[in-house]
Nucleic acid binder design. Structure first.
Lengths: 151, 151
DNA sequence: CTAGAAGCTAGAGTCGGGTCTAGATCAAGA
DNA sequence: TCTTGATCTAGACCCGACTCTAGCTTCTAG
């Protein structure tokens, strides 16, 4: 039932380096125990916690925020509202980020659409000429006809 | 019509440092000209290009990718397919990123929901007890009843 | 004329999140 | 026994994207 650091690395997708680093940074929910020879011992629940961690990381949550979260959890019951607040705050951040990405996506799709149109019509040589406006995105920053923010 | 670096910084939201840095990195569509005293001169179109740049940046496109893009554009007509490919590639990346964020969001919402439920029922003291399972997210990694990946 | 703001360059520093190295120890198999 | 491979620690290094500093010049208002 005991897992070596190598095994955990393999199964979590993190490197052994990263695992030791996470430990130093206080990111483990339970302290990592050692064998008498000094080697680290992990268990299934560490893997589960790491899975949660990497999910949070993949959403852009900083190691610092994760550390705060585990610290609250380690203090035991009584601070659930704080933990909830922390999660909710990050939830808002992620929503905002998705929003931002979608906006950028709109701009890019607009530009891609223009490229495709012009290429399809064989007008590509006109397209890259400054003073030929093609850049105003749906709700973009360009304001009139004579601009070359293109490319 | 000429703009100083300070003016451009103010209007673009980038710092003067960043503007000089971007220039060194070859991110300007047109080379930045200088006054006889050595000072940089910008124009409206630079501002427009910077707006596009910052939009791409905000979507996570690296300066390196942006540099590749402007280099293609600077080479003039003939490589439109490459530019299109570059944009499309990044579009795919952004879509994947949004997907990833949404997945993390689902996990977080699931956890937040649990916190709320239990808090509402005043069962908070039970909630943080390992061996009390509450963590399996909609399609998460946990596989059975006896785990403590919680917190 | 002078102070202060703004610009210039080259290069150093920062920060987050790891990654890698050196040098030592330890365990298992041929 | 000897080798191979996994592990250990402390600490150096990396990368991207800036940010800031030092030391100097140049413009502008009073």
């Amino acid at each position: 039932m005991d897992l070596s650091i190598g095994e955990v690395a393999r199964r979590s997708g993190l490197s052994v380096h990263a695992l030791r680093f996470y430990e130093r940074e206080g990111l483990f929910a339970n302290p990592v125990r050692r064998l008498s020879n000094g080697r680290r011992v992990y268990h299934e629940e560490d893997l589960e916690w790491l899975a949660v961690c990497t999910k949070l990381r993949s959403s852009g949550m900083s190691l610092e925020a994760i550390r705060q979260y585990v610290e609250l959890a380690r203090q035991g019951p009584g601070n659930e509202h704080e933990r909830l607040a922390l999660l909710r705050r990050h939830e808002k951040d992620v929503e905002a980020r998705i929003q931002e990405l979608n906006e950028a996506l709109n701009v890019m799709r607009y530009k891609v659409g223009i490229y495709e149109d012009h290429l399809a019509r064989g007008e590509a040589d006109q397209l890259w000429n400054p003073s030929h406006s093609d850049t105003a995105p749906p709700a973009g920053p360009e304001r009139d006809r004579r601009s070359s923010g293109s490319a």
